[in-house]
C-alpha cells in the first residue's frame, strides 16, 4: 500500500470513539509535501538495472515519480515490464507546461506490478516536435492511450503502429488539451444553424458572458 503512506492514518470507524483529541477531520488538513525519493526502494530497483536513467525522483502523497530521459523511455518501460514485473500499464497521459524551458510536455506513464501491488510513475520531458518512443510494443494497451495523447497534445510517438486522431476527427485543427488551445473552443466550421442562433448564447443582445 505504497499509495497510502503519507496520508494521515484513517480514522477509526468505531462511531463513539472518545473525542478527547480532535478528530482528524476537524483539524486543518496536513497537506503532503513532495520529497526526494532517490533512495526509495522502487527507484533503487530501477537504478540497479539501468543505472543512469533516473534523472529525478519525487515522492508525493506516497506516489513515486521517476523522471527518465525521453529517448530511453522505451528501454525503461521494457525493463520495467520484463525485469521488474510491472506488467500492467495503468495509465499514459501528458501534461502541457507551456512555458517550461526544458521541454514543453510531460508524458506520464503509470505502471503497476501485481506481485506486491506497487505502482510507479515514469515521466519524460518532451520538447515540442520531439518524438517519443512508443511503448505499444511493450504494452498493447498503450496504443489508444498514445493515440489520445497525440490527439490531445500533438506529441508524436515513433514506431506507433497507427498514430491517428482518436477522439477528434481527422483534419481537426489543433490539439485541444494544449494550454494555448482556447478553452471556449475554435471555429471548426461545424456551426449548427448559425443564421438562426447567432453565436453568444442567450438572447440578450451584447449582454452575454460578462
Amino acid at each position: 500500500m505504497s499509495d497510502q503512506q503519507n496520508v494521515p492514518p484513517q480514522a477509526p470507524s468505531a462511531p463513539q470513539a472518545p473525542a478527547a483529541p480532535k478528530a482528524p477531520w476537524e483539524e486543518k488538513p496536513v497537506t503532503p509535501v513532495p520529497q526526494d525519493a532517490r533512495d526509495h526502494a522502487l527507484v533503487r530497483e530501477i537504478v540497479a538495472v539501468l543505472p543512469d536513467v533516473v534523472l529525478e525522483a519525487v515522492e508525493f502523497a506516497g506516489q513515486i515519480t521517476a523522471t527518465v530521459p525521453c529517448a530511453r523511455i522505451g528501454e525503461v518501460c521494457r525493463t520495467c515490464k520484463e525485469r521488474l514485473g510491472y506488467s500492467f500499464l495503468v495509465d499514459l497521459t501528458a501534461v502541457d507546461w507551456q512555458e517550461r524551458p526544458q521541454g514543453r510536455f510531460d508524458v506520464v506513464y503509470w505502471v503497476h506490478r501485481f506481485s506486491d501491488s506497487k505502482r510507479l510513475r515514469l515521466k519524460v520531458n518532451v520538447a515540442e516536435g520531439v518524438e517519443v518512443p512508443s511503448v505499444t510494443g511493450v504494452w498493447k494497451v498503450a496504443n489508444w492511450m498514445e493515440r489520445e495523447v497525440f490527439d490531445m497534445f500533438g506529441i508524436y510517438f515513433s514506431d506507433h503502429p497507427n498514430l491517428e486522431r482518436i477522439l477528434t476527427w481527422e483534419g481537426f485543427n489543433g490539439h485541444p488539451l494544449r494550454k494555448d488551445f482556447p478553452i471556449e473552443g475554435i471555429d471548426t466550421g461545424a456551426a449548427v444553424y448559425p443564421e438562426v442562433y447567432p453565436p453568444g448564447g442567450g438572447p440578450v443582445a451584447g449582454g452575454e458572458g460578462e
Binding site: P15, P32, V95
Partner: peptide, 22 residues
C-alpha cells in the same frame, strides 16, 4: 454507519498543494 459530521473542515476554496497525484 457511524454518527457524526459528514463534512471535514476544509477551506472554502479548495486549493491542493503543488504536485501531482493519481
Amino acid at each position: 454507519l457511524p454518527e457524526g459530521p459528514v463534512m471535514a473542515k476544509v477551506p472554502k476554496v479548495i486549493k491542493p498543494p503543488k504536485g501531482e497525484l493519481y
